[in-house]
Design a protein around this nucleic acid. Structure first.
Lengths: 152, 152
DNA sequence: AAAAATTACCCACTATTACCCACTTTCTTC
DNA sequence: GAAGAAAGTGGGTAATAGTGGGTAATTTTT
């Protein structure tokens, strides 16, 4: 699999749940469709990792030299707020209140899936960020894709 | 493949579907005639990538280091509106309502094929943009293609 | 330990989409 | 120009996706 893809709009109901979109579910093997690790994301979002992907990241981090203060701090910060989550029988996810407040989630939520992760954004915040960066998109493409070519 | 070409006019039916023109289908190998990746293009249009073309790009992106903020942002920008799409048995594409609204698609739609992609425009919007820029065509040619000579 | 709040589990309903079938029109071939 | 094939339209229906909320179980609070 080339990784997760897709942008999905979901609605949080009165109980703080939303349906995990079928389009995303189908990208995951049956064994990984139920359990996820929820963590705070970079920038203003939450991130959902399929368990196997989370373990890959964990392994990477475990290789760090934890005698270095900076590494220890990064390790703590990265894991702080991580929580194991499972879908209910209707295929919905319940986001803990504390997490929702942390990134200012309202009723309208966007799920952004790429590579090994699913980001959870407040819809209006997401589009603000996207529009704010759109102007730099071309430059960014040049910069990012340019770097990649160097590696080949 | 020498790349896709052509401008096609299609009509969106009451269910939000349109027929993928046979002239375009014939440019694709049988294996790639069914599945596409839809996403939001530059300017006010949607872009359809044949799956193999999309995967080429994906492979490159998968090598990025996602601990770098720039790379994450690029990923998000590039994946805007990304959604896997398949034709139905009658060879039609269903464009999700959210996507149609996002770029203001009405009943009359233009498909613009070039290189590895197919752009989907609202007809009137497309001609507005074309006409609006026609006057600058000569200058643009000079500006864009003029540089090419230097490199050859 | 009782009350309140949160979370998990379950059931019922609605909307959307995938799938199918039938028909009309246009192009090809004889 | 007739016959057949392919292109293009339109819509019905069954299955799935998505929504809403009741109640039991668990946890938290007083």
């Amino acid at each position: 699999m080339a990784g997760l893809v897709g942008e999905f709009e979901v609605k949080v109901d009165a109980k703080g749940r939303f349906l995990f979109p079928s389009g995303l579910r189908k990208q995951l093997s049956p064994a990984t469709q139920r359990d996820f690790m929820l963590n705070k994301g970079f920038e203003d979002c939450l991130t959902l990792y399929p368990l196997p992907e989370w373990e890959k990241i964990s392994e990477k981090l475990a290789k760090m030299n934890l005698f270095k203060p900076k590494n220890r701090m990064f390790y703590r910060l990265f894991h702080q707020g991580a929580k194991l989550i499972a879908l209910d029988n209707a295929g919905r996810i319940l986001i803990p209140t504390a997490h929702m407040e942390r990134v200012g989630l309202n009723q309208d939520v966007m799920l952004i899936a790429y590579n090994d992760r699913i980001e959870i954004w407040d819809k209006s915040k997401y589009f603000d960020v996207i529009e704010g960066n759109m102007a730099d998109f071309a430059d960014l493409a040049d910069e990012v894709m340019g770097d990649l070519d160097d590696g080949e």
